[in-house]
Design a protein around this nucleic acid. Structure first.
Lengths: 258, 258
DNA sequence: TGGACCTCGTTGTACATACAAGTTAACCCG
DNA sequence: CGGGTTAACTTGTATGTACAACGAGGTCCA
């Protein structure tokens, strides 16, 4: 039974503060109320307020230090687990219409590479999914995903052209809990260049991902290749907060600071 | 005057715990002592202990939840601000010998791109630094960095072939506090391919960086191009902890989990 | 023997308090 | 009028307490 009646107070606070920033009510540079004022407004003690502010700070949304009330940094906010894991959710949240075209959904014995990524013996049954992902109808990413058979089996009851595999699997109870990502660059192979409409051997931004359950079992492994003129990754770090990573639609320059 | 006599308790605790993991005394999967035991060991209250554990958790070093003592996750630990900002520090910490060869250190009016990155008017005096970075003597990265004149001026008193510009500037009192990074992929231009010893138009992993003071003034802007077979970026995220980003030496595969 | 149940230990959440450290703004004096 | 000092305010750090939520392991009964 799912028991979601009690949302912790500090989380409700951080959600509320996040919403005020997102709505534009609190603009960049806005000096937010002191902890004491927030306590008074929400009728709580300092603990939850500080916990909520710490969460926003770790996301890079606010800055500030001892003696000075926090300020809205206006930086790119860090992305939650599901937003970072799901292309569809990320695209929708960024104001684009995500799309997809499925080339292949196949069950076959795992080849050596797939077996290594899924952490299973070679020739174990696996399910491979090959899709082209679109942003507002424009080809943006080639997605080569493999699943263990018991997870991939679910996909044959799902229209992979309809939307988010991540959301579907989560709704089916697949306990995705952690992700490990490696980002590098590769040259487009003939298939990539044709699908993404770029010259052959053009540089692509590649994210290799392994998604795991809490106990470490690999539930999904993927090789995603992005058109770097369309999608990049962005990081904010500072002396206080370590670097959270976000995937960002690249508007052909890195100098979007106003 | 630098006043560093008092290191906060929770930070000493997290440093100690981090050290135990790094030393191998606490291996992957090790179930660490309960909060009560840690309190007893260090003679503190639960507050600092929880603060230290929260720091480790946000770095992805430990996992765990309600009712279950935390466990060492064995994941790639997040990198601190200075480790992530400094190629030299990162390389040394990863077990490599960093090296560098300076092509050019020049003072000239900022061109349009540099001016935009540094957030100054065009033709403002700026200092450009062009260096090849090495790992164990192997070309790994091309670094094109620009500084405002008052910061770059310091470099003319520094041997840019000797080591870390980041550490030098920090020691000179330059208050680097925040970084904004954008990662994408580009094709090697003729100069890149010659310096990095890769074919022309080979894909390179690019990190564009703007380093700022706490008040937002840009103190450094850089375009770093990595050989993707030598350096990649790595991210761990989870339902609890958002994604910190790390730069990782790529050992030609992404499946280094044992 | 096996399964349901309960208890105990552990972490998450929340409140109250106190002091230290840094920032800001007002104030006073030259 | 300007500059330095001071006082008030704000956040960081730390302690203590209490209860809720959850997991694991043992116990008891069928």
């Amino acid at each position: 039974m799912i028991n979601r009646v009690t949302i912790p107070l500090h989380q409700r606070l951080s959600d509320e503060l996040r919403a005020r920033v997102a709505s534009g009510r609190w603009q960049r540079g806005f000096r937010l109320p002191s902890e004491a004022e927030l306590c008074a407004e929400f009728g709580t003690s300092r603990g939850p307020v500080r916990q909520a502010l710490a969460a926003l700070r770790s996301e890079g949304l606010i800055t500030g230090g001892r003696g000075r009330p926090p300020e809205v940094s206006g930086a790119v906010p860090a992305q939650s687990f599901s937003t970072f894991m799901s292309f569809s959710e990320w695209a929708a949240g960024s104001g684009f219409t995500p799309g997809q075209h499925t080339y292949e959904l196949a069950r076959r014995p795992a080849c050596a590479e797939v077996a290594a990524m899924l952490d299973v013996p070679a020739d174990t049954p696996a399910v491979d999914l090959l899709r082209l992902r679109l942003l507002d109808g424009v080809p943006a990413m080639i997605e080569r995903t493999s699943f263990p058979a018991d997870v991939g089996r679910l996909l044959f009851d799902f229209d992979t052209d309809s939307g988010s595999v991540f959301a579907y699997l989560r709704d089916q109870g697949v306990p995705l809990a952690r992700g490990h990502h490696v980002v590098d660059a590769v040259a487009a192979d003939p298939f990539d260049s044709d699908a993404l409409q770029v010259p052959e051997a053009a540089p692509l931004l590649r994210e290799r991902r392994r998604s795991m359950a809490a106990d470490g079992r690999v539930l999904e492994a993927s090789d995603d290749r992005y058109r770097p003129d369309l999608v990049t990754f962005s990081i904010e770090n500072s002396l206080e907060a370590r670097a959270p990573l976000t995937r960002v639609h690249s508007t052909n320059d890195a100098t979007e600071a106003t």
